[in-house]
Design a protein around this nucleic acid. Structure first.
Lengths: 215, 215, 215, 215
DNA sequence: TATGAATGAGGGTTCATTCAT
DNA sequence: CATGAATGAACCCTCATTCAT
């Protein structure tokens, strides 16, 4: 295959360039940009969201952007960071409290809630992951956390006999997580008319999840 | 040698520009381009795949590309069309033959097989769907077919008592399809070292699927 | 430095891309581009005038052009607008003041003056009109104004007996206007050595015009 | 001004490349191409007429074109040659036969007839003249012939007292020719609804012409 | 003679990023 | 801090012309 000039990843200086705002005004501007970005992502998607669009919506000059973000990608990274934080919090919170079904229900519901609330960020994130290794890595990271947590839970359930002993724990953890993640993504991307909605979705997925692994 | 006269705007739509090759040689060139595209997509992904790269890999001149495809997107569309055809064939083939478990296994295995074989096309397809409505629509179309088929099967199973009567059929159909689709996608995108592999994946997913819905 | 991310299709129409300069510096750049365009059109003609040529002559970067004009055609449109404005002013100014001959002379002279001064724009305009409907329409518009004005004047002259009563007013208005317009165009396009020159041209055309329609 | 790489004119070999068809079949193909060219020019104009379009309309292969014409321009040249021949014939035919008015009428009518019949070729010719020196020269050539002929006629008329003695013969010859030429061009390019039509045009222009120069 | 395939220079346009004010 | 202007590397697409069959 013809050699292709390696497209090298971004490098160091960028990081320092992202001056942390020192004044209240700066803080506000940065936040306006983030809010504008959400809007623009929602409207045209990550690939078509131009820095200038974001600035126009935010009501700032085009150059101002680079006072707060070293580059276009950093904008999404910032947004994703918040979202990822919430997801991680979810993954780390206690999952077991009462009966299995309500536990599963609570976790799935939490996931759906966070996902729907940050829907546009998630969509942009997923799209950008196809091209930005940094975002792809973060995406994988978050998922890995969830899968690990599910895995641990299932293992415990198997150990004390609540779950089937013949489960392939790894496949089950990955598969059930994938089911929830993708179902939510698809449903929130669907036409409003054919959307299942949070309630049914959460109940239905909980039902499948429980039936799939517990005795 | 391309002497250019006064340049002017484009004419009609790109449609008829996609000449169907009329000779064996043309056919071969077109195929070389498609094969090259697969390679390039695999290497750099859809968004960064330049027409020129594809041509270099295919060993043709840059202009040759446009003898066979009206634009860059059409290349992916052509590749996707083949793949979608196989998926649809799968969705339309008979699904029930013997016992439930082996039926489910066969279908999932078929899906995984097709998906892995056209892995790069699927990845590019998904990435492009974020920006190309046509591809997004096709993506939805194919999934809808599968979900509908699953739905019908579950309904039949409920009717004759093989499946649980309290299933939310729509959520179940969508959720299980999502589980398989996403699990496969993620696994084939994972580091080779942490990949579960087709055998385990198919068995494990089959197990979950069967346990989730059948008595 | 233009790092390009995933490229995608164009957005909305080019309209809002034509930023109006907000600073003196921007204003100056825009004007430099317009002046450069005149030069380039004069040298190589509309069809062969490349955006890059204009930028080189203007001493700006290639991208700068698109800060001020949404596309190559808009450059000509801007130039034409100024010129058309002057022509329309001419068509709307008072035409009658003293005796018929000096009135006609004044109008023709004004037209020739404006035409010669913007010679290159006119030539480019005419050339582009063959392919750009917008410019063709504007061309027709301006001419229509003139013809209408001539028509009205002739009608008045017929009414008060200064002009021949048997005139076909429409043909006369269109024909005499065409005579002046085309004579000027041809003369300014001719070899300098065989050019008739403004003085003779204006006198001679005035003479023909007067003799053709007045008693 | 920035130097610009001289865009050199075409050169010798082209001429010999235009093989004269030796067989009846070849002759027919060539004519099909010419006829197709007229159609295409009429439909999309010279600048947008692609060689391939002409071939498609003619029903020949794309490569066939170059068996009969060395390049795209030659196609128009061939068409123009026929048309120019008719115009020259007109310019060389006897112009005086009876009374002045009917002579002028006859000549103008002949010109209009030829122009309307080859309307599309004339339009293409004029458009191409802006960019192709060869066609521009031919255009000037034909006009020069006409102007010279008009000039001679006017001179004779002045000599024998039929025309005004104070005429500026050169301006009159150029101006009246321009009037007819441009009036015809504009009228045939106008919306059918606002067209004056051959009859009125010829009568009206004849009237103006006669009044303008004859006693 | 006829033809479809192949070519590649050419040129328009986009937009992230840098800079001077 | 804020900003509008400037930049230029990318990259897509066109089409006259050449070539092999």
């Amino acid at each position: 295959m013809g050699e292709r000039p390696a497209r090298e990843e971004r490098r160091g200086p960028d990081v320092e360039r992202a001056a942390v705002p020192r004044t209240r005004r700066g803080q506000a501007t940065r936040e306006r940009l983030l809010a504008a970005a959400r809007e623009v992502f929602a409207e045209v998607g990550w690939a078509r969201a131009r820095v200038e669009d974001v600035c126009r919506v935010a009501g700032t000059g085009h150059g101002t952007f680079y006072q707060y973000f070293p580059n276009r990608t950093a904008l999404l990274v910032a947004l994703v960071a918040q979202h990822a934080g919430e997801l991680n919090a979810l993954a780390e919170a206690p999952w077991t409290s009462g009966d299995v079904k309500s536990d599963v229900h609570r976790v799935i519901d939490g996931f759906v809630a966070v996902s729907e609330q940050d829907r546009d960020v998630r969509v942009a994130w997923a799209a950008a992951a196809a091209d930005e290794p940094a975002l792809a890595a973060l995406f994988g990271e978050v998922r890995r956390q969830f899968v690990a947590r599910v895995h641990a839970n299932l293992a415990a359930a198997v150990a004390d006999g609540r779950a089937r002993a013949d489960l392939d724990l790894e496949v089950a953890a990955a598969g059930l997580t994938a089911m929830v993640e993708h179902s939510v993504a698809l449903d929130s991307a669907a036409e409003p008319s054919s959307r299942l909605g949070r309630t049914r979705l959460v109940s239905g997925l909980t039902d499948l999840w429980v039936a799939a692994v517990y005795r």
